[in-house]
Amino acid sequence: MLINTVILFLRDALPIFVLIGLLLGQVQLSKRVFIGSLFAGLACSLFFIQQVDVLGEMFAGTGLEITLWCLHFFIYCLVVLLGFSPLLFSSHDISRVNQIMACGLLVLIIVAKGTNFLLYFNGYLNQQNALQSMLIGTLLGLGICLSLAILLYFFTHWLNRKNGFFAPWLVLLVFATGQLVNAINLLVQVDVISDAAPIWNTQWLVDNESEYGYLLNVLIGYAATPTTLQIGLYLPLIIFPIIARYWWNRIATQTHRGESQ
């Protein structure tokens, strides 16, 4: 039970902590807003769990997978929007807008990832001798996740100071894309979309179930056996926002120069 709890914590809670580390390194969130977002996420997760049965029955039994994929899609959209915020909003509004988007991201990822963990706790907490193992496992998992979140916070903060807003946003974009592309499996497994067999197998290089496998899966969406659809979406989902941001920035600069002259 102890090892299970640690593994589940690493798989389901690590993306939440990674996002927190990456966000706090580039968006200035007040303590009150940050804690408020965490509680809002937890409340939404509890509400989500109560609706899981209803959702699961919707769309011929595919409702839960569609909802979870949509949550990952909204996370990706908000991350893309976060990257465009310096170009879309005035310097007066940008801090407030970024804070709202960061809150939205925190709530969405807690619902998308935390639900599974809460289900596990809810189902097994009443079992004999489970509480102690689960608490120790949670503490161990929490320690690992917090360490990585702090490391990523300092890394993102350093990137932000050295290269500006773009570089840490790129790290966040790769993370969100990885999460979204991995979530495609949810739609494939209930046959909402069809996908072919894996196009390669790098299990020999980095095992999906190894420590590096878990970490790379969370950070960049690594999968040892990716499918054509996953590969076909991964690169465009990263490259298109970068190109769009570059052109938008270029047009905005030219317009600004034209107005100055």
Partner: peptide, 25 residues
Amino acid sequence: TPEEFDSFSLNRQKVIFAKRKTYIF
């Protein structure tokens, strides 16, 4: 108790609630 069907090699992961049935392709 709930259980989660999980397979890295099959790329599948699905929670099965207690006393329920579910399906995956």
